[in-house]
Design a protein around this nucleic acid. Sequence first.
DNA 1: ACGGATTCCACT
DNA 2: TAGTGGAAT
Length: 710
Amino acid sequence: MPVAKPESSDSRVIAHVDMDCFYVQVEQRKQPQLRGLPTAVVQYNEWKGGALIAVSYEARKFGVKRSMRGAEAKEVCPQIQLVQVPVARGKADLNGYRSAGSEVVSILSRRGRCERASIDEVYLDLTDAAETMLAENPPQSLEKIDEEALKSHILGLNNEDGSDIKENVRNWINRHSADHRDKLLACGILIVAELRMQVLKETEFTCSAGIAHNKMLAKLASGMNKPSQQTVVPSSSVNGLLNTLPIRKMKQLGGKLGISLQTDMGVNTVGDLLQFPEEKLQERYGVNTGTWLWNIARGISGEAVEGRLLPKSHGSGKTFTGPRALKTVPAVQHWLNQLCEELSERLCSDLDQNKRMAHTLTLHARAYKSSDSDSQKKFPSKSCPLRYGTAKIQEDAFNLFQAGLREYIGFYGVKTQGNHYSGWGITSLSVSASKIVPIPSGTCSIAKYFHGQSTSHFSSMQPLDNVNGEAMLLLPPGVHSGSECYSEVNSPKAEVDFPKEESWTEDTVPELDLQEQKDLSSSLSKTQDGFTQDISPSLLSACLEQSQNKQESDITKDEGQFKSEYNKERKGKRVKDKGTPSILELFKSYNPYPFGSSFSQELKKTAEGTDARLTIGLESKGHSLAEQSEVGKEKPMHCSSSGYGRDEGDGRREAWSYSIDEIDPSVIDELPPEIQDEIKAWVHPHKWRPNNTVRRGCKISHYFSPTKKS
DNA sequence: ACGGATTCCACT
DNA sequence: TAGTGGAAT
């Protein structure tokens, strides 16, 4: 549900950039002879010519629409060029579009904070760039203004007949009488025009953009003049724009909420909302949504542009419509294997290119039950800790499926051991990987990473007898062997029967020293289902070695991808740990350290400088922390949300930053002073939060106050 | 018999 | 937490 983010006198410069019929452009770049022709991208050609998922503007002129079948498109536009989405493993393969999207993001992120909103859309916060330009190089001082900027559409700028539109635009941009906010937008126009030209030059893709004082308005504007144009919303034109705007056109109101607004409240345009007092809206839709509605009616939206260039999850799915529904367990297993293969491959690339690992595997399915009354019943989604390696993902996903299936058919159906039709059919399957966090580098993050993510590392950190035996077993195939990350295939195909519960619980738990078990078993890794995360440090090292070999030269480049990545804090939660193993021990155990140049140097420096103090006893530290935590619940969370932070604003480089509220204060206190300072500097001083969310402000200052932990 | 395939978010 | 539901492209 939408959530209000209050703002007051919002003088940000926000742009929303939207690629024009992106998939079509990607295909046209591959096949330049298609340029300028009516073209559509279609998937699954077998049935009625497949479904259209992207339509070029030339084709739209003929009335070709998305959600048409290929055959229909041919009827209204016989010349239309239909290009199929690439297929891999029997399913649509969108990787080409994903990487094309990344090309664009890497260009658009040059001038300010950039948020990848979807595969073909980004938001930019250009406030700083605009302020700088205004101070150093204001539009008025420019003798020449980009042709592209002059083609901008400025809402509310009346073009009298006979007047030269571009001249009007030029005048608006150069206007001396403009207030500060309009001048900022004028700078935004120039910056965005330049960015769009760079995108075109470097990728051959055109895009459209909206420029305004907040995300909502920028998004609205980007869609107003397409393709390959940009639209500006000066604040003086906001009311006029929203007054007559159909309510359903607003982002978030295209669904049930919008319908309810229309039918229950008689609200047909955003302007209609103005007559309702905030309390009334809250009454009807709850405080958050109510306030949000009240705000958007006035063009107010305080949502920040998150600095996030990479997706937060990866998924691979497929639907099996009608007669193609999957009716046997082996059929499901086959497709799950395909989906998991793709997912694993993408996780591997992500690890490789972005140094991130996912921590949760989720299976979604849709099913029907012909027999029973409650054929409406939803197939439950299930998740578990994600283990790297294709075979492991396949195995886990299959187990998740069977767990879901048992619930879905509700016992008794268990008789039909697998291959027989038992009245159910799977109409869609998907696997996804989420909770993707950067692989930590630097001091406490390492320790925290291991501590939070793995039980097995404790055993492998112990006397050597454990290391070889266990850690090797835990290595996903294809990882420790270096480069064959992608070659991993096939899970055992035999097990079609419902597995006995135990098969994926107890026996996957690595053995722990008794003392360690006592210390940790309650708090680490073991989930309700008895799943165990078995990423060991050796696994981590192996993965990194492998990726480093491949990507060594790319490390610095890749770091750029991480500006501000994962600076988003986890709401109101704070990590509680039971203790932090010595970083030095980790160092000793994993040598040579597999990180790339800058990391390891930083790390070594830190380690040397803090020799004694870094040896933090598990017990004592655990205690002091336990006492400290306000909430009694001893449930350490996974260490999540750390990231490279080359902060756009201050130009800091190659630093890993934790989300503020996840930094374990006692660990920070153990660090050398200069590191402490750096971490404190990572605290982003001001960030607007929704009025409903309890903020961390006081907590943080508490954490960083001079309280002594030891 | 759902336009798919994704991704993200908020709520519980 | 894990799981559900809604929304958007």
